[in-house]
């Protein structure tokens, strides 16, 4: 299982016709962007290197720390065939979205 993933990772994803196969939440103020859902069988799932609760720090070296939700989604939808995600596992920060 993904218990042995390092907390901080750089993950390279190749876009499929359905995108990268994960959902994001956050981007309100500088709370950050988090992976909230990973589609089974999608690119992110198949990579085995991303997990729900990961905070996305950058995409293709575009800083995601203070980005808005809108801009984050736009970058991820238009970043071309591959996305290099710099992520850090922050489940305890992510969990507040689940409790809203």
């Amino acid at each position: 299982d993904q218990g042995d993933l390092p907390l901080e990772r750089r993950v390279l994803l190749r876009r499929s016709p359905n995108g990268f196969g994960f959902n994001i939440v956050g981007g309100d103020g500088d709370e950050g962007i988090y992976i909230s859902f990973i589609q089974t069988g999608g690119v992110a799932d198949k990579s085995g290197e991303l997990r729900k609760g990961d905070r996305i720090l950058s995409v293709n070296n575009i800083d995601f720390r203070g980005v808005t939700h809108e801009d984050a989604a736009t970058v991820l939808k238009n970043c071309g065939d591959t996305a290099e995600l710099h992520v850090i596992y922050k489940y305890d920060d992510f969990i507040r979205f689940e409790n809203r």
Partner: peptide
């Protein structure tokens, strides 16, 4: 009431 909605986007 939590007025702060949170948006979720599929990418």
């Amino acid at each position: 009431l939590q007025t702060k909605n949170y948006r979720q986007s599929a990418v």
